[in-house]
């Protein structure tokens, strides 16, 4: 779908999603270019997380299209129709889209290191030695070199989240999705996770981040997107949007969180 010659890595067109009678997404259009950091902001229940979960097909969209790296997510385009993929085919697509969850979701029966090697060994089929070596490097990269044999329950929230980031990175993702990665953390632990994310952005990783951290969005984000009630009301350069929001809802929201 690079028909109009852009370098968009993620392209969402008119995405709709309903849970029963509740319309959560009412036509979302969004583009994320390779290397960009896009922050989704807005009040809870606005559809940010749902939209993020649609990007790797954890939620099935009801209407519209989502393309990641030139491939329709969750569907196969054939004869002008989208055919829904089998779960194992969707799984294959997800290998290249990393996701970090609000509640970390580390495998609680595996150590930090085992969490990281699980995907490379089981999904990518990497040799064990290589997987473990890379996992150790990744742990070092997120500042947890000496914590490799700890179980998730023995780690602080901030450490768990950094392991979770390393686990995603081990799959060599083209795109990283962050679903409120610091919302479940004690305030003094937020910084260490944002630090890892900041480094990641600096290395050129394409990231879509649902967050309430306005400071992070302003400093690291290339684009800030405000969602209310299932629609994007405003998006643009964070510096501009945060200082001079155009839409009334954005102004109200920012006046409360800033």
């Amino acid at each position: 779908m690079s028909s109009n010659g852009t370098t968009a890595l993620v392209r969402a067109v008119n995405v709709h999603k309903q849970f029963g009678q509740l319309e959560v997404l009412k036509g979302i259009d969004l583009e994320v270019n390779a290397g960009q950091v896009v922050c989704l902001l807005g009040p809870s229940g606005g559809g940010k997380s749902t939209f993020l979960r649609c990007l790797n097909h954890l939620e099935r969209i009801d209407r519209g299209q989502i393309w990641v790296d030139g491939t329709p997510v969750g569907y196969r385009l054939s004869n002008g129709k989208f055919y829904e993929l089998r779960e194992r085919e969707a799984a294959k697509q997800r290998t290249h889209i990393g996701m970090v969850f609000q509640r970390f979701n580390l495998f609680s029966n595996r150590t930090a290191l085992e969490n990281i090697v699980e995907g490379p060994i089981q999904v990518l089929g990497l040799p064990r030695d290589e997987a473990y070596e890379r996992a150790q490097q990744l742990l070092e990269r997120v500042g947890l070199k000496d914590w490799s044999n700890r179980y998730p329950a023995q780690l602080s929230g901030g450490q768990q989240q950094r392991v979770a980031i390393a686990r995603s990175l081990a799959m060599n993702p083209k795109l990283m999705l962050f679903d409120e990665p610091t919302s479940a953390l004690d305030p003094e632990l937020v910084g260490e996770v944002l630090g890892v994310m900041r480094d990641l952005a600096a290395e050129g990783m394409t990231m879509v981040v649902v967050t309430h951290e306005v400071g992070f969005a302003r400093e690291v984000g290339d684009k800030a997107v405000f969602m209310f009630d299932g629609v994007i009301v405003e998006q643009g350069n964070p510096a501009e949007v945060f200082t001079a929001p155009q839409h009334q809802r954005t102004q109200q929201f920012l006046s409360k969180v800033l």
Partner: peptide
């Protein structure tokens, strides 16, 4: 916790592998 299953999905595990691992 359902989060465990979602984490498995997010690293590309198939349903069978998620069950087993």
């Amino acid at each position: 916790d359902h989060g465990q299953v979602e984490a498995a999905k997010s690293i590309g595990m198939t349903p069978t592998k998620t069950m087993r691992r």
